[in-house]
Design a protein around this nucleic acid. Structure first.
Lengths: 333, 333
DNA sequence: TCTCTCTAGGTAAACGTTTACTTAATTATA
DNA sequence: TATAATTAAGTAAACGTTTACCTAGAGAGA
């Protein structure tokens, strides 16, 4: 039998209220003698308070849900780590949910999280989808989105990255280094980040007196496969280009692989730049020049905002837009 | 105000017991008319059952704790995904805990998980540490360890990988391909997997008539940094070798980087083989020949065992030892 | 001495479910 | 027709806490 607050109370010959006060450090009005007696008993009998019972009363579970598409996607472990770190600091637990960007799974998770009475939800997406289940819109608890909006819903908080400026800086850098015809292998244009990066790309060209050529723009997915195929296709089509701005690092990694196989040298013949700065970027040959996204920060910030909202639901949160940073390595000359 | 089972019961003019039975599908003895009436009310008012209240009675929270050192380490997302996938299948939630192999954090997490009344715990470690907190030993709930033992504790279940055979196969393959003096850049020998791989390495040499030379064995960590340094050191020491068997892929990636920088060609001059088969192995140049560990499987299996134990605590679990697989790519000739 | 204010703790309801047991009505069986 | 069995519910305790409110005694001030 598990030992409860009643057992401790009986043994200490006090009421459960007294024990409760001591356990929760609301014990200004408890004598040192009683406190010590109770604390000793707790230690001896290894009493651990049942937080599900407390939750019934306090209406707080001290847990938050983290919905991401796939922890296996190298983008997400860092944001997960960020939210977990801050959550722990504040005594919250995080429940990990992999949605695979699948509406059904999302609905199912939202249901489970609601039933478990989580205090809030952080929602991250790889932005491959723009719809969101109506279950989301019904939610009574605070939701923070990171990296994207939820259409039709005003989430209580929003963390994004300044993708436009990031792309602008990356592309500008390429132009300044002498690259003139820069291919853009973008992510899916249904997603805001992909759109913003495309925007930054165009503006950078424009500001440097280069006319945007739509033949140099390809829309695809966020994976290495697509980077590989995109380059292969461009070459087959005899497209002329001397640089590639990729929608993310995975695309860039695929692109470099294709170039290597064709015997095209990076960065001498063609420069490549990615987006994200995942660890792999430092490991491929050549090391990838890329626009770093503060993934850990995003997660951490998201948890910060969420927990502040949990504590003060009436507070209005300002959206936060994090800055990117150009990381120059070897894939550009 | 959140709507409760009582509200539904009142509106449907039935008892809460009836509603409860319907919600939990224990409704053989409920008339279709009543069932439908209640179901409709639930739908209309968007009633969601409070599982923390149920947990009080059923003594089950349907959640499990997953303690890993760091989700950011490329080894772990796959195992996390494995446990999450199976857990979801069975209606369990997983609470993610990053321990950083730090005893204090571990103790803190165990405390929190106990208080939250998780039904079981999966404990994974990067094997950098062998001690475990006494809090672990006190735990009343089932614990499954993956990848390593907990010293002094008989966990209710254990998932490991046959590291010895894996190493044996990898090293044998190198020898058969003509490599003769094979360096071993191992992980920390405080960890069982590192030891077993070392064992497999020696046995393979032995079985192929090559004498083990202790000058060719280096003990280190599990990261790329160490691989880089290990090789640099070996070269500085004018050590003669034509192959490297690495304690894991990260080490191998670091080693290849060092070799590349010295202008030593892989695999022509020196062959390199890793362990794990993380995604990065397919992305470095040359692609890494490695011994694949079934990470996802490990996580999945662990969740399977844990949940079986939760349902049938009396059952005795057989330890499972998963097989590795040699994946031949480009870093060996 | 009387009243007031602290101090140290106790009382008991409440949180939202589940479930063992009970009950009333209906149907089947002999 | 009398009884047994089945169906379709309802009753109320229990789960382990927290907390608003209460109380008894001690000391202080007048």
């Amino acid at each position: 039998m598990k030992i409860t607050i009643k057992d401790i109370a009986k043994m200490a010959d006090v009421s459960t209220a007294t024990v409760s006060k001591i356990v929760n450090h609301k014990d200004q009005n408890i004598s040192q003698a009683t406190r010590q007696k109770v604390l000793d008993l707790i230690e001896i009998h290894n009493y651990v308070p049942n937080r599900v019972a407390s939750s019934m009363i306090t209406k707080k579970t001290n847990s938050i849900g983290l919905i991401i598409p796939d922890i296996t996607n190298p983008f997400f472990p860092e944001v997960a780590r960020g939210v977990e770190d801050y959550a722990k600091l504040e005594g919250y637990h995080v429940i990990l949910c992999n949605s695979d960007n699948d509406l059904d799974k999302e609905v199912s998770y939202i249901g489970m999280l609601q039933e478990k009475m989580v205090d809030g939800i952080i929602f991250t997406s790889s932005s491959l989808r723009n719809k969101v289940s109506k279950e989301f819109l019904r939610l009574q608890i605070p939701v923070i989105t990171v990296d994207r909006d939820i259409t039709g819903m005003r989430a209580q908080g929003k963390i994004t990255v300044d993708n436009t400026t990031g792309a602008y800086q990356g592309v500008s850098y390429m132009i300044e280094r002498g690259y003139k015809r820069i291919l853009h292998l973008g992510g899916p244009m249904t997603s805001k980040p992909a759109l913003d990066r495309f925007e930054g790309y165009k503006t950078a060209l424009d500001d440097h007196g280069i006319k945007y050529d739509e033949k140099l723009f390809f829309e695809g997915n966020y994976n290495a496969q697509w980077g590989y195929e995109g380059v292969a296709q461009a070459i087959t089509n005899n497209l002329e280009f001397d640089g590639i701005f990729c929608g993310n690092d995975m695309i860039a990694i695929g692109a470099i692989k294709a170039l290597n196989e064709k015997g095209i040298s990076v960065p001498e013949n063609i420069g490549v730049i990615g987006f994200d700065d995942i660890y792999m970027a430092t490991v491929v040959t050549p090391n990838l020049t890329t626009v770093r996204q503060p993934n850990y920060r995003m997660g951490y910030k998201a948890a910060e905002m969420l927990i502040e909202l949990i504590k003060h639901p009436e507070r209005k949160m300002k959206d936060v837009v994090l800055k990117t940073k150009l990381v120059i390595r070897e894939s550009t000359k």
